[in-house]
Design a protein around this nucleic acid. Structure first.
Lengths: 330, 330
DNA sequence: CTGTTAGCGCATTCAC
DNA sequence: GTGAATGCGCTAACAG
């Protein structure tokens, strides 16, 4: 049936230890190495990962928890995480939590059972009590406690940039629209930055914050916009929300990019490709993934990494904000 | 440190065998069962999956190979696969192949090494030589050989429906635009169905098929549309391509949905949400995922499943085709 | 440098 | 019903 190390050792006329050494790249006499390798070849030997894991307590496997891989931001993030991990010789488990703590707990169990070495998680549930300080866990976009490592974009700055770009384009009545999870996360900073900047420029922000899970989101947006006809600039918590809002604006026959300007957040490539039109605050998804992966691997290996990493963002102009500001400004 | 079965057995005052039985739900006297369970509780015991895997040679883990999780169709598919798998108590490895056979081979190795029990693959490379008949492998959207199980949408019918919907809307000069992989896959059927139906209605279709990987795709589309100004209806190989084409049409100032109609393919929810406007042929992604998962699990368990499953598709009307056909038809 | 050996933690005989 | 014993395939420590 399936060849084991013993078979290989027998065929090569050496001990199992030697076979193990060859496989793991530990120095062995060239000649014996050749013998072993050809035996491996002949028997079509493949190492059994279970036996190995049992000894080494190391799986070279990570889990990625996202609310849903459906969301373009998460799927782009997952893409980069897997790519980076693959370079490092790691495999990736994918978990859609749907915001349910249960499933997240399950994966935390897995690291305890040695099924995975660590977790990268975009978790919007109250998972924090389960992640202990010595559990390799890197949180994305969410601050738990001092113990939990996290990497995030500079959401505060993003909010400020959005405000500044809108104000630059003569927006007088800025609005912020978002859906909010009952669990605190970094997206709240987008609002903070936005309103702070607006207030500094003597503009007050009207806001709509819909509780998650979103029900009748579109209707609520519509009502909000009808109640506040003066709004001429909107900052949306993310691109998908921005697109939903645009839908409503279309329906209300407000000319987006002219009568009313809108800026999203994320700028993940999928969304941009599909909606080349949306002005947005772009997060460096690739970088986030890279840093997350590098950090968690270092954590697994017992090295020090910064508790917190914050990545810059930048404005990407689309067609939902006014062009040629220079001309406008004249 | 970490509690093992031995510890539990010691604390409960029973043998390890009994502990094992309790854990695996094999009948044990109620009383001893309770003892064991409370010992497990106290010691916070968790089964080591590696030791278990070593014995059982079963991992309850599957791999999903997609070209890139980025693509909304694949990310939606991945979502449903993971969801379905989760119900069945399976874990999912995610692999972005980027169309490279190497990475796909690596995962096939993994099933041989008992790291995964089976693979669901959307593979556009010539992986077929590596998947043997007894390897649990379900292919999506691609026919290999008689040996390989696959599930796909009814692409031929989809093409026909697209043609019929366009013709119903008075299209006279239908076109088909696509990018094509050098490896045969089921998407070619979309063209077949489309052109077949058109020809049956005495319309000849002009087509643009750009080789993958796409370089200068947009430019090629633009040139194609300029060279064929008569085109008044387009069927695109998928939604993303349709959106790219719309971009070009916008640039050329052709009024989409009026001067020129366009139908995409996929209708995955993400794309629809973001582009509520696109008329498309909708695949039942959830169903595809469900069937794939059920079939591969059956295969793993050694049961019979149909070699080939073909799922129906349907037209979903957006704003890129004419509305109120009745009125038009009068 | 290399062969031998002792577990890793569990499931599964086999006796009792 | 249940405890004890055997090995799954591998790595690492040890002895040569």
């Amino acid at each position: 049936m399936k060849a084991t190390m013993k078979d290989v050792a027998a065929l090569a006329g050496v001990g199992v230890g030697t076979v193990s050494r060859v496989i793991n790249g530990i120095k062995v006499k060239e000649q014996t190495k050749d013998k072993v390798e050809s035996a491996i070849e002949i028997l079509n030997y493949e190492r059994n990962e279970y036996a190995r894991g049992l000894k080494k307590n190391k799986t070279n496997t990570l889990a990625l928890i996202v609310p849903t891989i459906w969301h373009p931001f998460f799927s782009e993030f997952a893409y980069y995480v897997e790519e980076e991990l693959s370079k490092e010789g790691y495999k990736l488990y994918l978990c859609n939590s749907n915001g349910e703590a249960d499933k997240e707990k399950e994966y935390i169990q897995m690291v305890k059972q040695n099924k995975v070495d660590g977790i990268i998680g975009v978790t919007y549930s109250d998972i924090d009590k389960y992640v202990s300080a010595n559990l390799p866990f890197v949180s994305i976009d969410r601050y738990f406690t001092e113990d939990v490592y996290y990497v995030t974009s500079d959401n505060l700055l993003g909010g400020k940039i959005a405000a500044s770009e809108l104000i630059k384009r003569k927006v007088q009545y800025p609005a912020y629209i978002s859906s909010v999870s009952k669990y605190k996360n970094e997206t709240l900073k987008r609002y903070e930055g936005f309103s702070e900047y607006c207030e500094d420029h003597n503009l007050s922000v009207v806001k709509l914050m819909v509780d998650e899970p979103r029900v009748n989101f579109v209707q609520q947006v519509e009502q909000f916009l009808i109640e506040h006809p003066e709004i001429d600039g909107i900052f949306a918590v993310n691109d998908l929300t921005a697109l939903d809002i645009i839908k409503v604006l279309d329906k209300l026959e407000r000319k987006v990019g002219e009568d009313i300007q809108i800026i999203g957040f994320d700028g993940s490539k999928t969304a941009l490709d599909q909606n080349y039109l949306l002005s947005t605050i772009r997060q460096q998804v690739d970088k986030m993934a890279e840093v997350s992966v590098q950090n968690i691997i270092k954590l697994i290996d017992g090295n020090e990494v910064p508790k917190r990493v914050m990545l810059p963002v930048k404005f990407v102009e689309g067609y939902t904000t006014k062009k040629n500001i220079d001309i406008i400004e004249k």
